[in-house]
Amino acid sequence: MASEQDALTASGYIKHHLQNLTYGKLPDGNWGIAHGAEEAKQMGFWAIHLDTMFFSITLGLLFIITFRMAARRATAGVPGAWQNFVEWVIDFIESLVQDGFSGKNKLIGPLALTLFVWILLQNLMDLVPVDWVPHLAAMMGIPYLKIVPSTDPNATFGLSLSVFALVLFYSIKIKGIGGFAGELSLQPFSPNNIALKILFIPVNFLLEFVNLVAKPVSHSLRLFGNLYAGEMIFILIAIMYSAHISLGIFGGFLQLGWAIFHVLIVLLQAFIFAVLTIVYLDMAHQHH
């Protein structure tokens, strides 16, 4: 499962499990896969996590292909089992949008649906025992593999920054640049005196700007942090297997218990991400 020196110690095992399969420019000037965390770090921005991309795109394709199957055969008549499930999910998302979104925008429903199902699928990869897929990959000569895309901050920031871009886009589209700037600089302190008002603009802007920027950061870090912590606990439990037979059996029970508990987190985080997206976009659509 790991290159020899990594597998020897517990910390090496953990580090190995937290290392993405990174493709980028190696120190010797060639392009290739990084061997270890140091090399990956030196690649800087112009590198890509092949495992994150592969699993997230595979899961995304799984989502759109299976849902498209139901959508293509969607009829108003008696639905089949799969169509029924898809309808249930879409109805659920639609009710969330109805409750949380006051404006009118055809993008919100599909956006929330994609986020919810895609993140849910990504999170569910966390329930696959931590060594199975990386071990298989190691046999095929792939040195590192992280199968849970949502434990990679690149993935979660990719989602939250896309949502943030939509928030900025709709804020400016609905309120105009002036309206959006006003929202950022004339709140929360809005004295009636003009001079005071001008005086308060930098203060307001500081507060509102932090508020604005905190949204995508907290949005993605919440998902990343929860899944990363969950993954870490699975890795720690997995270390017990190599210790002793009795500790290994105990670890087995622990893993089962944590997996059952983790299902809640998996669902909840996907749900929270979708709901927050709806809420942020709703705020972007509101006039003050």
């Binding site: 993405n20 990174t22 980028g24 990956a40 770090k41 690649m43 800087g44 921005f45 112009w46 590198a47 890509i48 996590h49 994150t52 991309m53 997230s56 795109i57 995304g60 989502f63 759109i64 849902f67 498209r68 139901a70 959508a71 293509r72 969607a74 169509q83 898809v86 309808e87 879409i90 055809k106 993008l107 429903g109 599909p110 956006l111 649906l113 994609t114 895609w118 895309p149 990679d152 901050p153 690149n154 993935a155 920031f157 990719g158 989602l159 920054l161 896309s162």
Partner: peptide
């Protein structure tokens, strides 16, 4: 590390949302 994966994820995400908006949401 924050790297190109971020942009790759965003592109994939935009594609999936577009596909969903075009081909999944309306018929269902």
């Amino acid at each position: 590390n924050i790297n190109l994966t971020l942009i790759g994820q965003s592109i994939a995400f935009i594609f999936f949302v577009w596909f969903c908006l075009k081909f999944i949401w309306p018929p269902v």
